[in-house]
């Protein structure tokens, strides 16, 4: 009786330690593919002298993946990455933004008006860099309607 109990105990201990070892090894294996640092370019973009953008202009920035607007109230930048599955939206003055991939539509302010996109397009922070250039931070969102005034 006692013997059997001891055997069970040893058996359980052996299985337990084997499982623990396996689990640790697995955790290590699974840890490796999750990157500690996300590689990629800095997403703070310097766009040059603010004066080069006329009031009322819209500029599509391909590498930066955003649209830069300047109106009477100041600058604002709207991300061109669709919030649905990441395609690049097209812009037209009257109708706002449209995504080619699954037909999401956004109004001129980037709010969703149709299609599968779960949220509106992100408004990105615009500021002036220390050396006087217009700068957009692709990592920082600001609330819709925020304008940046130069000077």
């Amino acid at each position: 009786m006692f013997d059997a109990g001891r055997r069970d105990f040893l058996g359980l201990a052996a299985i337990g330690s084997a499982l623990a070892a396996l689990g640790t090894a697995l955790a290590g294996v699974l840890r490796l593919p999750k990157p500690a640092v996300l590689p990629g370019p800095m997403r703070v973009y310097k766009l040059g002298d603010p004066a080069q953008f006329a009031v009322g202009s819209v500029v599509k920035m391909d590498a930066e993946q955003l649209y830069l607007f300047r109106d009477e109230r100041g600058f604002h930048a709207i991300s061109s990455v669709c919030t649905h599955l990441g395609c690049i939206v097209a812009h037209s003055e009257r109708e706002g933004f449209a995504c080619p991939c699954h037909g999401s539509k956004f109004d001129t302010q980037g709010k969703v008006t149709g299609g599968p996109a779960p949220t509106g397009l992100a408004w990105l922070e615009v500021s002036l860099s220390p050396d006087g250039q217009l700068q957009v931070n692709g990592e920082t969102e600001v609330s819709r309607g925020t304008r940046f005034q130069v000077g």
Binding site: D62, A63, Q65, C87, C101
Partner: peptide, 9 residues
């Protein structure tokens, strides 16, 4: 080309 999606993709 990361700037222009194939349409339709």
């Amino acid at each position: 080309d990361p700037a222009i999606p194939e349409n339709p993709a």
